[in-house]
Each structure stands twice: as structure tokens, then as C-alpha cells.
Write a protein that binds this DNA or RNA. Sequence first.
DNA 1: GCCAAAATCGGGAGATTCTCCCAGCCAACC
DNA 2: GGTTGGCTGGGAGAATCTCCCGATTTTGGC
Lengths: 226, 226
Amino acid sequence: MGERTILLADDHPVVRAGYRKLIEQQPGFCVAAEADTASAAYLAYRRSPTDIVIVDLSMPGSSGLEAIRRIRAFDHKARILVFTMHDGLSYALKAFEAGAAGYVTKSSPPEALISAMSVIAQGGKSVSDDIARQIAAERLSGRSSPINGLAPREVEILQLIASGMTTDEIADALSLSQKTIQNYHSGIKAKLDIRTDANLVWVAIAAGLIEMKSATPVAEVDASSS
Amino acid sequence: MGERTILLADDHPVVRAGYRKLIEQQPGFCVAAEADTASAAYLAYRRSPTDIVIVDLSMPGSSGLEAIRRIRAFDHKARILVFTMHDGLSYALKAFEAGAAGYVTKSSPPEALISAMSVIAQGGKSVSDDIARQIAAERLSGRSSPINGLAPREVEILQLIASGMTTDEIADALSLSQKTIQNYHSGIKAKLDIRTDANLVWVAIAAGLIEMKSATPVAEVDASSS
DNA sequence: GCCAAAATCGGGAGATTCTCCCAGCCAACC
DNA sequence: GGTTGGCTGGGAGAATCTCCCGATTTTGGC
């Protein structure tokens, strides 16, 4: 058989150059295209599908997860390998939900990427050791995340609380009474054995309920007010 | 004159390979050493100083900032260029405080890294465009961060609140009455025009008061047991 | 050195919120 | 058809928040 073609999606040109170099040293693989955004990756794949797509999760615009979903929606047999800095288990799980076939963290040795590529090219699934360790830890400890003991509604409300919304705003958004939100608020803290709202934010972050963004969510500079 | 020697410090081997390739394509520069941790970078520099040190901020163990400080403590004339993913202004300011001579984000075009290297090699300072834009925006809007209107003590208490500590714990830690902490708590929220504690966390993150850690705070499993 | 301003620390009191308990409703599951 | 669990809210006392105030210390300028 011929060489496996690869689409590289990462927003850092220098990093892409590193991947390319590493991959092309490997016999049997060849980088066919590059993309620096999620939508560019999708369009590139749509134009000419490759055997493997390697994507970073954090890219400008819509995230890498979105790229995975769109590519998989276009071609359900697309083989997508996530190669990212995020070593949190929640990111990996989201990636697999979105349709990824592999997940390798950038802190892994280069060989991990190569071997994952081989596995994926043959139709398998692959995760890097650090993620595998977390999954094992989760299984052994019997719980994936502290929020697993929460009811769906509680998770939803936790997310809104952690995002910074007030009780009134949440009640309004969900068309519930403020009293109900308050009760949930207390109940969530009790279930998680947490005493401060700040810790709710940290739990939500750890559970992957909240997207981390470096932009200030508050402090609207609003220099361009209407 | 001869080539400028460079020490590359980044914890991702693949990424380092990209840097190396990019840099060595450039006449006048040559990668003399690599390091994958902050302390390894320090030791490498100490063993044989290079003209320029390129460091990532996020590395395992002590952070890149620590590497900068230690290298500068050893050699106050060391020229250090931060090349990192973090595009937050607060990170850049911290890097310069630690003694960096340049700050380029990984989302910059490769040319930005090269030109920054040239500037720094000649004893100058350099920041990438996106950071420069943020600095300009800060100057124009008259404030760098919403927390700038806060008194030192308020910033300190905000940090503790955002880290998840309860009123009692903070009062105890600072040897103050709970009442005082409560008053500060209210005052900080009023000054920042914030109504929920969750948003205090986001402000603290945006202001660089809190270190972001993606590691799951739960589920540590002793895998090394027999 | 001196005055003004700001920061630091804490009390008081009323309004608000939190917490815990409870109950009705519904859906799922033996 | 009974039980369990999630969803929605009320009630009431405890706790907290908020806003006001004053005392003291620190800071900054002249």
C-alpha cells in the first residue's frame, strides 16, 4: 500500500513545522495538508480527505472539538488523532465523544505520536499513557469526577453558577423560581462537600463544565460602545 | 562575528524539533542545547551559557518563570526570550518582571520569533504584536486590569477568596477578624461591580492572581504500588 | 514636620441569603 | 403497585451580606 496521507491542524506554524518534520522522518506517512483553524481543517478535509487528521484542541475560532465534529459529520469514517497540550481527562473524553480515534498529549514522547498514528491508521483507537493512567485511576477509584454524583439538573445549574450568573439570572434563564435555584445551590455544595462558591468554579473547571479562556469574561472594556 | 548560540527550553520534544528546524534555517543562529524542564534549562545554561535562551512558560515542575529568575540570578546579562502559548498580558508582564528580554506568543508568525531573536541578540527587548496590542489597549483605556483599583490588601484577600478559602480560613490565615474579611469581601465585589463569587474567580484568573492547573484535583491513585 | 488622603481594621443593624427540612409531582424500575 | 430518585418549591431559623460608621496606621506631598 502507499503512504498514509495526513492533514495537520494546529494554529502554531512553528509547531506544525515540528510535527511535519517528525512525521516525515517516519516511513509510510506523509503530510498532505496543513490548517491553522478548525474551519480550515474542515474545508481542507472536505476538499481532499486524508487517511489521518491530526488536530490540536485549542485553535482560534471554533475549537478543535468543533473541527472533529464537522469532519466526522462529513465523513463518518474519518480517522482523527488529537494531539494537544491539555492533559485533563475531561478534554480527552470530550474529544472521543466528538469522534476522535486517538488522543495524545504534547507532553508525551514523540514515539507516542508515531505509534498512535500507526494504530489509528489501522482503524484502532489510542490514548497516550498519561490519559490512560487517568482513566485507570478513575476506574480504580470508582468515580470519574466529583460531579458524577450530581443529577443532570444539578450539573446544569452548577455550570451556570460557575460561569458567574446570579441566582436571579439562572432562575430567569431556566424559568424556575429563585428559591429552587437557591436550593440547588445549597444542595450542590453539600453533595460536593464544598463550602465556597469559588470552589464550585474550580470543580466545574476540573470537570470540564467550563471552557477556559484567557479573555476576561467580566470587565467589558467596551471601548467600541454603540 | 560567529553564530549566536541558543538554548531551547520546552517540555514538548516535538515542539522543540520545530523550533530547532526553524532556527537553524536562519543564518547566524544555532541551537547549542535543549532542555525539557525549568531546572534542566538552568543547569544547562550554568554549564555553558548561550547568547540567547528561549523558554516556554509552562513546563513541568517549577515554571518557566522560575527558570528565568534562576538564570538571571546566575547571570544578570542573560538574554531570555519567552516563546509561549499564553497570550495573556499578565503572563507577559510577569515574564518581564522575572527578567525576560522578549515575549513572543506561539500564535505569532514564525518571522516574529526570528525577528525577536535578532533584536534580543543585539541587547534589545521585544514583544509580539498581540501582546503589544494589549499593552496599547491598556494604556488607552487607562487601566490594565480591573483589579488595579484595588488596594494591596484587597488584592491579597481576593486571591485567597478566589482560591476557594472560606471566610474563617482567610481570617485565620491573616490573623484578622471574620468581620474584616467579610467587609473586604463585600468591598471587593462592589469595587469590581461584581455580584457573584464565581466571577471573582474569573477576575482573579484574568488578572493572573491565580495559577491555572488542568490536573484533576481528585482521583490520585498510587500506581507505583506493588 | 504636618496635613490630607488613602488604607487597614472592625463594630452595628437591617436586609438578604443560606441551609435544612419538608411535600407534591412525575418517571422509571422492580 | 410500591419504591426509588429526580424535579420543583415553601417555611423558618441561622448565617451571611451590605452598607454605614469610627479608630488607627500609612502614605504622599509641601
